[in-house]
Design a protein around this nucleic acid. Sequence first.
DNA 1: CAAATAGTGTCTCTAAGACAATATCAC
DNA 2: GTGATATTGTCTTAGAGACACTATTTG
Lengths: 271, 271
Amino acid sequence: MDSEKDFLENYKLSDYERPSVTADVAAFMIGSEDSSNYRRNPENKLMLLLIKRGRHPFKDKWALPGGFLNKGETIEECALREIEEETSVLPVSIMPVGTFSEPERDPRGWIISNAYVSIISEESVKQVGRDDASDAQWFSVSFDRSDSGEYHLVLSCGDIELRARLAEEKTSFGRTRFRIIESGGLAFDHAAIISAALTALRAEARNYDTIFDFLPEKFTLTSLQKVQETIMNINILPANFRRMVSGYVEETDEFVRGEGHRPAKLYRRKS
Amino acid sequence: MDSEKDFLENYKLSDYERPSVTADVAAFMIGSEDSSNYRRNPENKLMLLLIKRGRHPFKDKWALPGGFLNKGETIEECALREIEEETSVLPVSIMPVGTFSEPERDPRGWIISNAYVSIISEESVKQVGRDDASDAQWFSVSFDRSDSGEYHLVLSCGDIELRARLAEEKTSFGRTRFRIIESGGLAFDHAAIISAALTALRAEARNYDTIFDFLPEKFTLTSLQKVQETIMNINILPANFRRMVSGYVEETDEFVRGEGHRPAKLYRRKS
DNA sequence: CAAATAGTGTCTCTAAGACAATATCAC
DNA sequence: GTGATATTGTCTTAGAGACACTATTTG
């Protein structure tokens, strides 16, 4: 009887065909838009990073950043690498959204995708600066369920507007899958991946540990509240938000001044 | 400039090496053990299906059921197929646990695993009958965090006892990863997969929609309560459990009789 | 002072937890 | 009747939501 060592020395992975494996990342940021009124706080929008494809298939369509898994790295490392390549920012953490493995999902052949959500702070993106000639752009996101039960995903960036329509396919264990009715100019099955990522992010956003990643180290409680409100598309009364978050943050002795109204104290995340 | 059609006709996936992709499934069941006292209700235990490996590597070690992804199927279909092959039971639903892709996780080579939790009712397993000569066995599960912060996973089946020790590697977005300190006779990185699966199952078990899958169509509220208590390792007062689950179930007009105490009404899940 | 946000105090309401009491069966 | 589980009623409590009020800045 062969020893395990002998076995492994002679072992060859069978010649069955193998799939190509990719990681695709839905990278979200909270973007702030200055308002006309000097004393008003900026409006916040949930933004998603998309890349304009330079080659077939889906040439000139918009797609999530992503790429093939290299030998010697984990899928998480691959996902982080792809985001860093596109944004020059290394996200603090990523969250798995699911594996997309329908055999026909990629016209190039058998390619399965591991999808992740990543969260990036606007501050870190601004520090890096942006190459406006680049094919990577941040799109503002709107995602709603219509009365008919259909979901509408709208991504806008300047004059570009991508409108996808989807149906809820199944929800099990709190995870929702979507079927694309109309891709709205998004490549591959990325409209379905983005919808699943948004659903996962919204569910996760009630967890304060998650939303800190959208902000710099020091932040005001109002800005933290705006992050949660923007992602979950809800309104929270300030008094209640402050009470609920109080266990997760600690005061600094710094203030934000020059805003045309009472200065807000800066807080940091409690360790 | 080539059309997309031309492009795809000439496209070949690059010759980069590709990983083999597997689905591994942690299939759980709630097993009941008759007690000595005729009027006492049976004790419940959380059980996990393991397969004794017949070949290298890890020959004669215990492993999760699983297998390679075939061309033309999704990973979810692959996971369901593997469970049906081993148990003759097709689970109602499966929950993704994560992708395990550390390059060194499988001594045979570059093999990445997509892990799932599945839930099987004891009734459906009993109906199928069990082949006692088979290498597939149900192990009772215990999984606790020790005072030192280490996690102890103990799997027992008759005289066989597998004791693994693990450390919490990182928890992000509510998902916990484990590092194996001592595999306890489990194959590959399956001790870490089982730990992640158990953690996910425990978190999910507070959702009533999930725990119904452990029971037959008609069940007593006490049995449903025992399922939740067994998985989450907690005790719930019956009055409170009934109040909380009342919106999810509806009465039938049947009762369980002959138990040596007051008969319990059978309920079914509300649509 | 006006406009805007920052921040606090407290009432209400709901859902979960605790606990006591009653109901019904097999032996 | 006894011993067990089944089932119901209600008191208490913790936390979320609503709302009114005060504080502080810039122009």
